[in-house]
Design a protein around this nucleic acid. Structure first.
Lengths: 198, 198
DNA sequence: AGGTATATGTAAACGGTGTTGACCTTGTCA
DNA sequence: TGACAAGGTCAACACCGTTTACATATACCT
């Protein structure tokens, strides 16, 4: 025996369910941030965490489970929906433009960049509906048109992220940035206008 | 010798560079359409084409090469840019909405659905710029603002495709569909308006 | 015609992936 | 002390995309 135990005291890496789980998750987060999702193998995560590969699947079911857990903790578009309705589109526009500048968290950027992997796709799909479309729909009152409006807004937000993948982060001068933000805001406002008002 | 030769006459599958290449490509197209890109392995394609696995890499460099070739033949957003400028946004809007309805080709739908795979991502990125942003930019006159406008339009188009992945194809009644098309058209028009006109 | 280079096709392996099942160790409690 | 269960390890499984060494057929040239 080397003195390690479930309490985490003593020499050597902490053991025990919670400690191990946490260390795996931390390693995954770190490596995903540095290298993207697809480029990091289960064995690499395990090695970095000083843990056996099989434990990943024991504690998270599969590699995808790590992603699900991380995205569950961080959230996508966190806290954008709540708040004053009058400034909703402005908040969304600012967020979108800041993402265009690559100002999101390093992890978010890394995941955006490896957005493509089927796992990420699958996990994201669930989170986009539950973190953007659904709350938006509820926020907008939940009428028949609400979901259509929410979908359009989401389309624009996702598209902007997507086009950044293609074009790369663009450095804008302050004035250009404000112009672009205003333009995106106007687009979002137009998404939310009543359809029959055409 | 079994009578088969490079000309394709005689019993047994045709041999020779072109015939083999064509059969691999056809099998890939068929299987990708049915099962998506990621779900089809190189060996599966080879088996379906009655060909050795190594030939895929011989003739197409890698599995990704099949995708590149197929997308090169089919094109993305084919022929949408050319034509009357006054009706450009209308054409784009109709195309986007028809895609929302799942009315694109079966292959396109399948690839959209497995859009996520790093290979597809990589190939698409190149094609999106060369088939949408670049021509749009040129079409719009190529000024400084042209690229920004083209990017916004592309963002919207891509986002709509993307949100369809999340929400699934929605069946709209004729009136709803026309409303939606008009709304998308209005959004696209707004994308193209001069930024400083705010 | 014969011989030779070259194109084409084949078989087997390589290194990698995510995942799983059988085993062992460790700590706890009766 | 013995049974038991939780936690951890190891080796394997079934795939993947790709490559290398080899066999065969075709075409060309003397």
């Amino acid at each position: 025996m080397d003195g390690t135990d479930g309490t985490g005291s003593g020499a050597g890496p902490a053991r025990g369910r919670e400690a191990t789980r946490a260390r795996i998750l931390a390693s995954a987060r770190e490596l995903f941030t540095e290298e993207g999702y697809g480029a990091v193998s289960s064995r690499k995560i395990a090695a970095h965490a000083g843990v056996n590969v099989a434990l990943i699947n024991r504690y998270f079911g599969a590699k995808r489970g790590l992603l699900t857990e991380i995205l569950r903790e961080d959230g996508v578009f966190p806290g954008l929906i709540e708040g004053d309705r009058d400034t909703l589109t402005r908040r969304l526009a600012e967020h979108a433009v800041s993402r265009l500048h690559g100002e999101s968290s390093a992890l978010q950027r890394a995941l955006d960049h490896s957005a493509g992997d089927p796992d990420l796709q699958a996990v994201y799909q669930g989170r986009i509906t539950s973190a953007l479309i659904d709350p938006l729909e509820a926020y907008l009152g939940g009428g028949t048109a609400a979901r259509a409006h929410a979908s359009l807004v989401t389309a624009l937000m996702l598209g902007l992220t997507r086009v950044r993948l293609v074009e790369g982060a663009t450095a804008l001068r302050a004035q250009e940035r404000e112009d672009l933000t205003r333009r995106v805001e106007a687009l979002l406002d137009l998404c939310l206008e009543d359809f029959t008002d055409d």
